[in-house]
Write a protein that binds this DNA or RNA. Structure first.
Lengths: 358, 358
DNA sequence: TTGAAAGCGCTAACAT
DNA sequence: ATGTTAGCGCTTTCAA
């Protein structure tokens, strides 16, 4: 293993360049107010010594870390099996990198992890946090609030302004789950289908609830289209989709369209429909949600689905957080000016992508 | 956005408890050598004030951060699309969490990112680094060495001891790529196949080179089995597998077995074989490498493949790093005592998993 | 424009 | 067993 070596300090650079520590500090941090030749001498000394500032020392006085925590409250397995997180992380990573911030990934699996994460955030390691995938009973938001770290949430939290719950000051980014779902279901209805089912996501997450609401909005518009038996609970996974689809076929063999809560669920549904000998879209039209490239384009037939800009969501979350960190003035403007802003939540638009499955 | 608040210091706790800072520090860090009632008073003060230690200040003096960087030198997209990394990350996360260390994820996409990462590591943010997926021309290892941070590599680096290159002190963890490949190819040969092809991985990675070597070992054992035209270059992706398989069929229509460099490549190959009307395994037997559950078990037919303990690799990497960090005495023993140790590299065993495809 | 000096909050000798 | 004290390496007034 490569060994750690002791690094030169500001002091050493100052000595070598024959100047004071203050001057070196100035040069290292942008160099304004230092005469060119002096600055040059300092830079040479830095170079020769291979000086790199000690961030702990710097943070101690500046109280900045240029690091942001990303908290993912999911069993780790799913986090990475699911391209959704991958894409969001990617967006976040890009935005943070562009602003010279580091990404500290905090994975939580159980209760013990929650307190660990809370301690970490409270410990002042990071300037802010991006938090994902909260479930109904999740204690994390409360812990995070207590930790007193600026935070932006990914996905509408259960206690956001819209539900009239405790903390209306919460900032979050989400896509228009309800509107997207409505569009998908309307599309199925426009196709002339009348037995349009919905395989839900995990209903302890707001995205699943909102999509279900969108489904209800749409079927309510067509007399006779609403039938509670057509709604089966899934969990956003292919396996859950299979289970739900099987149950649906047993319950309502006359189903002629399925709106799945996400593409993975649709994937499972497609498998079961094929097994059952139902043709897609002739016998049963199928629509998904997310438009995750590796999934939606590869299914057989390719999936009609609701596209959301997942990577963009990640970027936006990071941007909002960084803007909030760099002083309050920009924040309000940004949040309010963003598309679909509503309170402190930013709702991104969705688009229906028509492919062969519906 | 939740606002940051100014936190109480050790000093404040000391004042409140009526003791010195040193005593508070002792209590906070385990509390040995402090009489029970006093310790209790301190704990109460900590509680009442909601005191959380400032890590920057602590790190400044202890020179420990209890954080480890994970550097993934891949386009971010692939990193997360590929369950391989997901599993390794998971193993790493578990091990780090178990030892109260944080995971700082550093994603690199281009040259600019390399220097950024180097600066970060040199900046003393973390106690060590876990580095993945190096390519032949990767400047990262050099930069990391210069950064002087203890490092464990995932996968044999190009310049490891085995190739007689510059830095023989390098610690890495890998699976027995060559032996695993050999076993898979021998299995195909034992099946009576004589036109056994190999779809390679990205040959700028040692794992691909080693698997190719294993393939060559095995075919060399059977007179007449070696034919250079049976080796086609892929890139570890399904798309690459499709391309390679198509080329292979064009080049050698008489192929009767395929050893794919990984399961994703095999997936692509299976698709092309199906399109081409070749039955698997009757006409062409197919074997993969990795045994990634979501892939190998779901293919049609299920894939015969070489299993490696990916999550275990991640855990081991983290363990080796942490052991190295906590003083040199344990390290030599561990590295030498680990299974398949060879120099400073630890090679984990592989197992052939027989399913229907071969 | 440059330097001197005072901390940031904590740990770890060293005293007591 | 507890307190005193001297920094860790840096930024940032304040003076010069």
């Amino acid at each position: 293993m490569t060994e750690a070596v002791s690094r030169p300090t500001l002091e050493a650079v100052a000595a070598r360049a024959g100047v004071s520590r203050a001057t070196v500090s100035r040069v290292v941090n942008g160099g304004d107010g230092v005469r060119a030749p002096l600055a040059e001498r300092v830079r040479r000394a830095v170079e020769e010594l291979g000086y790199v500032p000690n961030q702990a020392a710097r943070s101690l006085v500046t109280r900045r870390h240029d690091a942001v925590a990303v908290v993912v409250a999911e069993p780790e397995t799913r986090v990475f099996a699911d391209p959704f997180f991958a894409l969001q992380l990617r967006g976040i990573g890009k935005e943070l990198t562009a602003h010279d911030n580091q990404l500290v990934l905090l994975l939580t699996e159980g209760r013990a992890d929650h307190t660990r994460v809370a301690r970490y955030l409270a410990g002042g390691h990071v300037d802010g946090a991006l938090v994902f995938s909260l479930h109904l009973d999740d204690p994390l938001p409360g812990l995070i609030r207590d930790a007193g770290v600026p935070t932006v949430f990914g996905g509408r939290p259960h206690w956001s302004a819209d539900t009239g719950a405790p903390d209306p000051g919460v900032v979050y980014v989400d896509c228009d789950n309800r509107g997207g779902a409505r569009a998908a279901v309307r599309h199925l209805l426009d196709l002339g289908r009348r037995r349009v089912a919905h395989l839900t996501g995990a209903l302890d997450q707001t995205s699943a609830v909102d999509r279900l609401d969108g489904y209800r909005d749409a079927v309510a518009e067509v007399p006779g289209a609403y039938d509670p038996r057509l709604v089966v609970e899934g969990d956003f996974t292919p396996a859950g989709g299979e289970r739900a689809m099987r149950e649906l076929l047993a319950r309502c063999p006359d189903v002629d369209a399925v709106f799945a809560a996400n593409d993975l669920t649709a994937l499972g549904a497609l498998r079961v429909l094929r097994e059952a000998g139902r043709r897609v879209p002739e016998d049963v039209a199928v629509a998904g949600f997310d438009d995750m490239a590796p999934v939606a384009e590869q299914t057989d037939p390719p999936l009609t689905t609701v596209r959301q800009d997942i990577e963009g969501m990640g970027r936006l979350m990071a941007r909002l957080l960084l803007e909030g960190l760099s002083g309050g003035r920009d924040r309000a403007r940004t949040t309010a000016g963003a598309p679909g802003a509503r309170g402190k939540g930013v709702i991104l638009p969705t688009t229906l992508i028509r492919r062969a499955s519906a």
